[in-house]
Design a protein around this nucleic acid. Structure first.
Lengths: 220, 220
DNA sequence: TTCGCCAAAATTGTTGACGATTTTGTTTCA
DNA sequence: TGAAACAAAATCGTCAACAATTTTGGCGAA
């Protein structure tokens, strides 16, 4: 559970980061009511700080606030998750294309090295490790693209669907189809081919969308 | 300038809408400091309400807030405007493609009618009218795409670059090149051709990017 | 019983005041 | 003269109390 204020941090930041983490970790169920006074006591800050944090989280799309009726963690339906992933698809496509244009040789080396580690992780049957590397790869492509605006948008969108992404990662067989798509993205960037890179990124996200739509498959 | 609180509206909403409008209308210069107590007095609300509004506007990317040092309206450089428009490019491409898939016959009728009015406005040399119709068209495509997530993202991105868009609209000759691009988008949607619609939307935004990069041309 | 009404409780919205931090202007010393 | 140290002002961050709103539970009448 969430603990008290961290030393040296201001109150609002305390509440903000604590709430963010609690939502991301699933400590608070989707749809659960977030009573300001409760949170204030829990995080050992005042209501004003909690309030400020809730307003910010609302803007981030993580919580829902109804006037005079309080806040609750927003429930993201599968349809919404699909819509969000469609946006991710085009935005990550943009990043992949720009990364193919702008990445330095050293950055491409980092990417290919990471891709190899991903392949290895799948081969060794380590889905957790693969999941971490997966996240790293997406972040790396965003960074190397130089497109901070798209990266920022993607960061927000990802925060909204952590739950769905988590569920997806648990599906058996998912890493095997996913890894080849990732390798294709890296290969296209290494080839300095923006069009192929965008196509590969979009193909990957398209496959994620299809997986989201499918009924829950067997988990490992 | 902004007036006092509107009857029946809560204080925070008052401050929020007033500030939004003031920034959009350019009543506050970019980079100008936004002192909470000043705004509170100006809008006749308390500091807490102004604070809440500023936090929300910060999340929207309209103002910048530095801890203990206050808020100021964010200045969007040309480079940032380009990056934002690149994101708009892929997102509007997505909307155009989905609109081509999902739009009803009646909605397509609305689009073609609007396109005709745009053509007419350019022919009659009414750039202001064209600008309004332009905005309407983009909104309509977003609505008909059913992609509310993308529409929401685009709404935010547009709010950040109103100043640049305004400057762009004043350039002579701009409507003439822009209108054919718009007609192409509508035509592709009417043809129910998602690929062509996306390509047309992206071509249009690509042209906007090029225009943004050019030094300020002759204004009318 | 069931519906509408009213009062009590819970919760959010607002307010003014206090404390902390940063900036600015001034003084002092090398 | 120039820079460091200090003091004062401005401004943001936090707090506890109060007001307004919504929800909940009970009561009585049809």
């Amino acid at each position: 559970m969430a603990d008290g204020p961290r030393e040296g941090e201001v109150a609002k930041q305390t509440a903000l980061t604590a709430l963010r983490q609690a939502i991301a970790a699933g400590d608070v169920a989707p749809g659960q009511r977030l009573v300001e006074s409760e949170l204030a006591e829990m995080f050992e800050v005042t209501r004003a700080s909690v309030r400020a944090a809730l307003i910010e989280l609302t803007a981030d799309g993580l919580v829902e606030r109804i006037p005079n009726r309080g806040a609750r963690v927003r429930v993201v339906t599968v349809d919404e998750a699909v819509a969000i992933t469609e946006c991710r698809m085009v935005l990550e496509g943009l990043c992949a294309a720009k990364a193919a244009e702008l990445a330095t040789d050293e950055q491409i080396g980092q990417l290919t090295e990471l891709a190899e580690r991903m392949r290895q992780a799948v081969e060794d049957g380590e889905p957790l490790k693969y999941s971490v590397l997966n996240r790293d790869l997406h972040r790396m492509v965003q960074e190397y693209s130089g497109q901070t605006v798209a990266a920022e948008l993607l960061h927000r969108l990802n925060a909204q669907i952590v739950r769905h992404q988590f569920q997806l990662a648990l599906r058996s067989g998912r890493p095997h189809v996913s890894v080849t798509e990732h390798l294709a993205i890296v290969a296209a960037i290494a080839d300095r081919d923006p069009v192929a890179a965008e196509a590969a990124a979009r193909a990957h996200l398209r496959s994620v969308i299809d997986a989201l739509r499918e009924p829950v498959g067997g988990n490992e």
